[in-house]
Amino acid sequence: MKPERWLLCAASLCLLNTPAVSSVPVPTILAQAQGEEQTSIDVYRTVSPAVVTISTGRGSGSGTIVSPEGLVLTNDHVIRSARGGVVSVSTTTGKRYTGQVIATDRPNDLALVRLNTSDRFPSVKLSNPASIQVGQRVFAIGSPFGLSGTLTTGILSRVGRNGDLQTDAALNPGNSGGPLLNSRGELIGVNKAILSPGGGGNTGIGFATSATVARNFIQQNRNRTAPPITTAQSPSVPSTRGLGVTVDTGTLVVLGVQPGSPAANIGIRPGDRIIAINGRRLRGVQDLQTFLARRPASAILTVGRNRRLADVRVNF
C-alpha cells in the first residue's frame, strides 16, 4: 500500500509542478487579436475613400488625395505615359474626374495631380517623420491588377540609407502610387516597387518613398496651377461636325469638353465614357473618328457615368 501511495503523491507533485503552456490568459490573447482586427477595419474605413485609381490609357496605378481640394499624390512612373499630363482619376465610389499633372520628381518617383473640379474630398494626413519606426504595423491600400480598394497589411521591415521604406505588406502591379499607412491611418510612404527577381511575382519585399520626402515635394509644388485642358478634333473631322471632346485613346474616357459643342449641349462631361454609337460598341478612338468622318446628322451615344449607362441623342 505504501508504494502505491508514494506513486500517487509523486504523480500529484509532477502535475502540480508542470509549467504552464502560456503565462498570458486566453481572454487577453483574444482581446489583442480583436484589437488588431479593429485597427485594420478603422484604417480602411478612414483612408479608403481618399485612395484613387489613376489611368493614363496605357496603364493604371493608385494615388492618395492629400488635400480636400483634390490634390493627388502618386508615382512619377504611374503618370509618365499620360498625354499632355492629363489622366483619368476614379474614386472608390466609381466617380471619375479628369486630373492634370502639375509636378514630378523622377529621382524619388513622385508626382502631383490636381483634379479639375470644385468638389471637396476626404484626404489623408502625412505622418510625422519621428513616428516612422522599423517594426511598426503598416497597411497598404490600392488597386493591384485594377482591383480598387484592396487592403494588405505587414510591418515596416527596414529604412534604407536613402530614406526609402521597405515592407513585407503584399504589393503588386497597380499598388504603385498608393499609400503605405501607420495604425493611425497616416501616410508614412508612397508605394513604388517590389523586389521580383526574374519577374516571378511578389517576394515579400516592397518599397515606398518616405513621407518625409513626399511632404517636402507637396509643400514645394502644391500651389502650382494646372495648364488648361485643350480640346482636340481629328484632322479629318470638321469642327462643325465633330463631337467636341478630347478622349483617352485607350479607354474612351472623356478628358475635356469644348464649350458649345454637341457633346456639351447634351451634358457630356469629363469622366464620362463613350461606350457605343447607334448600339455598336466602340473598340477604340479610331471607331469614333471613323463614324464622325461620315458627317452624320445625329447619333445615339451610349455613355457610362458612375457605373450606369445611358443612351443619349446628339445632333451635329
Results as ranks from 00 to 15, higher is better:
residue 82 A to F: 07
residue 67 S to C: 09
residue 108 N to V: 06
residue 54 I to S: 02
residue 57 G to K: 05
residue 96 R to G: 04
residue 69 E to T: 15
residue 130 A to F: 09
residue 73 L to I: 12
residue 96 R to T: 09
residue 74 T to Q: 05
residue 107 P to R: 11
residue 92 T to Q: 13
residue 92 T to P: 00
residue 29 I to W: 08
residue 79 I to V: 15
residue 74 T to I: 09
residue 96 R to Q: 13
residue 56 T to E: 06
residue 69 E to C: 08
residue 40 S to Q: 10
residue 79 I to H: 01
residue 75 N to F: 02
residue 31 A to Q: 15
residue 48 S to F: 07
residue 61 G to C: 06
residue 43 V to D: 02
residue 101 V to A: 07
residue 93 T to Y: 09
residue 40 S to T: 10
residue 110 L to F: 06
residue 78 V to I: 07
residue 85 G to H: 08
residue 45 R to Q: 15
residue 74 T to C: 04
residue 81 S to M: 10
residue 99 G to P: 03
residue 56 T to S: 07
residue 52 V to T: 04
residue 87 V to N: 04
residue 68 P to K: 11
residue 40 S to A: 15
residue 90 S to N: 07
residue 77 H to E: 00
residue 89 V to N: 01
residue 101 V to G: 04
residue 32 Q to A: 12
residue 26 V to L: 15
residue 71 L to C: 10
residue 88 S to K: 02
residue 86 V to H: 03
residue 79 I to F: 01
residue 51 V to E: 04
residue 43 V to G: 00
residue 96 R to N: 11
residue 100 Q to W: 04
residue 44 Y to Q: 10
residue 37 E to Q: 15
residue 28 T to E: 14
residue 47 V to S: 07
residue 78 V to T: 03
residue 47 V to T: 02
residue 129 P to I: 12
residue 35 G to K: 12
residue 49 P to F: 09
residue 129 P to L: 12
residue 56 T to F: 01
residue 67 S to K: 09
residue 62 S to H: 06
residue 81 S to F: 03
residue 95 K to A: 05
residue 104 T to S: 13
residue 120 R to F: 08
residue 48 S to A: 15
residue 61 G to A: 08
residue 127 S to E: 14
